[in-house]
Design a binder for these strands. Sequence first.
DNA 1: AGAGCTCATGACAGCGCTGTCAGAGCTCTT
DNA 2: AAGAGCTCTGACAGCGCTGTCATGAGCTCT
Lengths: 348, 348
Amino acid sequence: MPSVQRHPTMVDVAQLAGVSPSTVSRTLRGLTNVTPDVRARVEQAARELNFAVSRQAASLVTGKTGAVAVLVPTLNSWFIGTVLDNLGPMLRAAGMELVVYVTPNMAERASFFERLPARRNADALLVFSFDLTDEEATRLDDLEMPVIYVSQHAKGRASVYVDDVDASRKGTQHLINLGHRRIAFFQTIGPSGFVFSTHERLTGYRQALAEADLAFDEELVVASSADDERGIVEAVGQLLTLREPPTAIFVDQDQVAVSVLWSLRRAGIEIPNHMSVLGFDDHETARWADLTTIAQQPADIGRAVGELYQTLVNDPEADREQHIVLPTRLIPRNTTAPPPRDAPAPGV
Amino acid sequence: MPSVQRHPTMVDVAQLAGVSPSTVSRTLRGLTNVTPDVRARVEQAARELNFAVSRQAASLVTGKTGAVAVLVPTLNSWFIGTVLDNLGPMLRAAGMELVVYVTPNMAERASFFERLPARRNADALLVFSFDLTDEEATRLDDLEMPVIYVSQHAKGRASVYVDDVDASRKGTQHLINLGHRRIAFFQTIGPSGFVFSTHERLTGYRQALAEADLAFDEELVVASSADDERGIVEAVGQLLTLREPPTAIFVDQDQVAVSVLWSLRRAGIEIPNHMSVLGFDDHETARWADLTTIAQQPADIGRAVGELYQTLVNDPEADREQHIVLPTRLIPRNTTAPPPRDAPAPGV
DNA sequence: AGAGCTCATGACAGCGCTGTCAGAGCTCTT
DNA sequence: AAGAGCTCTGACAGCGCTGTCATGAGCTCT
C-alpha cells in the first residue's frame, strides 16, 4: 500500500521540466507552439512522474466532458456488444471515454429518464435499441447534446440502423416465393422494453404479404422474451394449435430462432420439411444451426455510429437529423423449404 | 435547436430558491442539516431549472471522480454482459458511473496499459477475464485505486471468480465416472488474450486425471478462438485424427461447445454415443442443445463484485486482497454418456 | 433571565486545469 | 539598422463545486 500521496499535477510536471504549467498544458495537448526541446523535457517529466491529466479539471474549463454516454437496455447482447466493440476504439482514438448506462429493468429505465444523469456529464448520448416513448424522446431533446439513436428509427433525429423494412420484406418474400401462405412473425421482447425495430419489421412483413395478396392475420404474430424459455415454447405452441397453423415462422432474432427450432423439433416437427424457420442477424449461432437468416453487420453499425458522432461533433453544418441506413442480405441455409403439400388447412 | 445557453449552475438554483449555493450543495447531496422547508424550496428550484450537478466540478474538490472503470477485452460476451447487467444498477445506486474500456485487440490492450487512462479518472478499476502478465498487473498496482479482478485469480489482489479448479475437476470426474479414459480439453482464446481462467481449469482437469491414475497427454489439449469457425473445426479435426482419439471433449465455454457439437455431427459422429461433450457456463444455448455443462452464475458474480467494491471503498479495514470464490455445479444433460465399447484404441 | 449550547445557514477559498493576453526573443523587410 | 511581424512562453483569472469556518438564531438549563 503506497502512502497517502497526491496525484502529481501539472505544477509538479512544470517544476520538474523547468517551465510554466501553461506550457505543460500546451505540450500535453499537442498544440503546435512548443519548441521540440521543451516538448521533450515536458514529456520526459510527465513520464517520470507518471502524470495523467485530470479530465474533470480540464472539463471544468473547456465545458467538454470528454465522455460519450451510452444508454443500453442490457449488455448481454450480441448486437449491442459487437457495436460497442467496434465503436469503443474509435471513441478512444478521439480521446473520449465511454460511459455506459444499463437499464436492465423498467425501474432503472424510468430513473434514467427522470434524472438524466448523462446531462452535463457527457458530450453526446447514444441510445440503443429502445422503443422510446414520445415523452422519453422529447426528454432527450432537452439534453443539449448530440443524441444518436442506434438501431431505431427516430423521426427527425440522428439515427443509424439497418433497413429493417426492406430486410423484413425480403425475408417474408423469400418464404412466399417458396410457396408459404401462412407465415408467422415471432417478436422478441427484451428487458426494459428492448425491441428490435418491431414496428418497421412488422411493416416489412405486412408489405410483403400485401404484395402477394395475402391477408394479414393477427393470430400469426406472437411475442416472447428472449430469455424466457417457457415463453418461447408457449408462443410456438400457440402457433401450432391455431386452426390454421403457419407453415413458416419468421423470428426476429437468430438466438431466439434457434430456441424456436428446438421447440419445434421437440414437438416432433421436422425442419424444414414440416415447418420453415427464418431468423434475423446472422449470429454465429445461425451458421451451425444451419439457419436461413437475414444478415446484419453490427460491426459496420458501430463504425457508422463512430463516424456520425465525429461528424456531429466537429461539423456544425452537418445534418443533425440524418439517418444512416445500412443494408442487409438474405442468407439461405437449410431451415427454409417449400411447405408440405398437405399443410395449408389441416383444421378445416 | 435550443439557443446556446449555459447549463444552470448551483448559483442559479440558489438564487431561485433564495438561499446560498452552499445550502443548495448540502441539500442536493442529502446532508442532514437542512430544514425541510428549505430543502423543499431548493429541490423545487432544481427541478424547475432542470439542474444537474457537474460531476467534474464536484470531483475537483472531493478528489473522487464518481466513476468506476471497467476493463474488458470485449463486450460481446454473455459472461461479461451478464456480470455488468447486474453490477450496473448497484453502482448506479451508489451514485457511480460506469466507464468502460474495451480492448478488442492487442494494440488497444497495450495502449491501455501504457497510458492507463483510468488513472485519475476513476475511483476503482474492475479488470475482467484477462490473463494479465506480471508486468501488467504490477502496472495496475501503481494505480493508487482499488482494483478488483473479475473472473481471474490474481495473487495478492482482490478477486472474484468461480471455483475453476473445482469446477474443472468435477467436470472431468464426471467424464471419468462415465468410463472415459481419453478426455480432451478444449480451450477458448478470446480477443486480446481473453481467456477463461485457463490455468486453473487445466489444473482441475489434471487433478482429476491424476486422481484417477490417468496420464496427462498434451495432444489432448487444443485451443481455438471463439469466433473462428474454421479454427474450431480444425481443432476438432486434430483431435479426431490422433492415433488415440479422445472419447470425450471438455470445452471451456458452452457457445464453443455447441460449435464443437456441430463439427462432430458434421463428421458423422453421434453424440453422446460416439463422443461425449461437456461444456462450461450453462448458457441458454446449453439448455436447448441439451448440453451437459458446468453452471456458473455471472449474475451472482456481478452482485459479488458490487458488494466487494462497496466494502473496499467504504471500509478501510477490509482485506484488500480477499478472494471471493463462487460455486459451480454440474448439470447433466444428454451430450455425455459412457464411451463406446470398441473405442479405447482404434488406431493401435 | 442570561449563559451556554446546538443547529441551520452563509462566506470564502481553492481543487487542477485551460483560455486569454501580454511580453520576450527572434527573423525578415525596407 | 530599426520597425514590423512572428513564434514561443508565462501570468493570471476563473470554470462549478465542496469543505471549512464563522455567524446568528433558537433552544435548554441553571
